[in-house]
Nucleic acid binder design. Structure first.
Lengths: 209, 209
DNA sequence: CATTAAATACCTTATTTGGGGGGATGGAAA
DNA sequence: TTTCCATCCCCCCAAATAAGGTATTTAATG
């Protein structure tokens, strides 16, 4: 906490919350609020001048949503790290935020100390997340244990999902084309589908692949 | 830190490190080491009896690797949360560990206090990660900004990557099959490939989709 | 030891898809 | 104004796909 000097901008429409953060951050050595805005449109005009290292961004904003604002803000201030600070914990929002370039995702029940630590962490190249968010993110990597597919079938469906032809899959797995076809037949029948696309979708939705 | 009572098992082949963790954890109220093993094979026989809430697992083990041990351990002790504790920070290892069912991933330079906090966090359904790991995980969600593809082309390539046929893509996007084919031709030429599979692979590798 | 499940392989047939070639148009953006 | 984007149209043909059925070998489990 000695000689760090972090410039922070807020984008948050709720005045009470915004003032809370301003107070929290302004009263801590090494952290400085250089800009405070109520919407993306508001921020867009002036934020580049504020030279923020970290931007704390609400999801629910008047006008453009926080999620959609991320790439625009990153264009205006490419080196800034965006941390989403919100009450929402829906998977889709979280993944869209991260895909759009957020460096972190915190829920609003995050204690003040953790918020400050997260700002520092983001600036140092980390990816601060609330613990339940982190778990959701981790779970998105995980497979279901109750797949009806055998390991080999799973492997082949994965290959299909990469767009490879059956012939190519056969070559790469050192098996006959006919074997690949057999596996696919079994996959379709187990998943009760009649096409590649449906098999891939069903398998992904259920985390079989 | 009052009345929690966490049973912890270690799987770590380096004696010095293992003893370090034993000491750290054993000397903290609410944390108890109920088993300590040097390999998966060693753990397999006895770990169920130890009733662990959290398993701290090294990646590099003699015999079966820590990564491959995760699903086997989860089968033996389904309710345990596995935290990987390792020096390795390679993306592939991390993603494989998470896909295999790890609840967290820490590097060995993690300070003792953070290790204890992470154990508690994992038990409460969180996903503890070292900050650089978290960033890698977050980055895996992100797109490149310098894609040569137009938004429409990107959209179509995404559809192709789901396994849908051109005809179906045309129907779902309310455009003509010929339009889809044109886009695909342009995609292939921009990416300098000559097949679906190559386009998907190149686009995924470069995070265009 | 008997049974089952998994992975392997073979056959046929009809249809769809994929990749490559050409060119055209209207509108938006630079 | 010229380029880029999204849209649409024509041609060709080899390759891939889906669906039907059957069969062998090995490994695991009871």
């Amino acid at each position: 906490m000695q000689d760090l000097n972090i410039n922070i901008c807020l984008v948050e429409d709720d005045e009470t919350i915004r003032e809370g953060y301003e107070y929290l951050i302004g009263n801590n050595e090494g952290y400085k609020i250089t800009g405070s805005f109520t919407s993306y449109e508001d921020a867009a005009k002036k934020i580049a001048k504020c030279d923020p290292d970290v931007i704390l961004l609400d999801v629910e904003l008047p006008g453009i949503s926080g999620i959609d604002a991320i790439p625009k803000l990153k264009k205006l201030v490419p080196d800034a790290h965006v941390i989403i600070l919100t009450v929402y914990e829906q998977e889709l929002l979280i993944f869209r935020a991260l895909a759009n370039g957020a460096s972190g995702y915190l829920t609003k029940d995050t204690p003040p100390k953790k918020i400050l630590a997260s700002i520092k962490e983001a600036m140092e190249g980390g990816g601060p997340m609330s613990s339940n968010i982190a778990r959701m993110v981790i779970q998105s990597f995980q497979r279901s244990e109750e797949s009806p597919l055998t390991p080999r079938e799973t492997e082949i469906l994965e290959q299909i999902a990469t767009g490879k032809s059956r012939k190519r899959i056969a070559e790469e797995l050192f098996i006959d084309l006919e074997t690949v076809k057999s596996h696919i037949k079994n996959i379709y029948s187990k998943l009760n589908v009649h096409s590649k696309a449906d098999a891939i979708k069903l398998a992904k939705d259920n985390k079989f692949i």
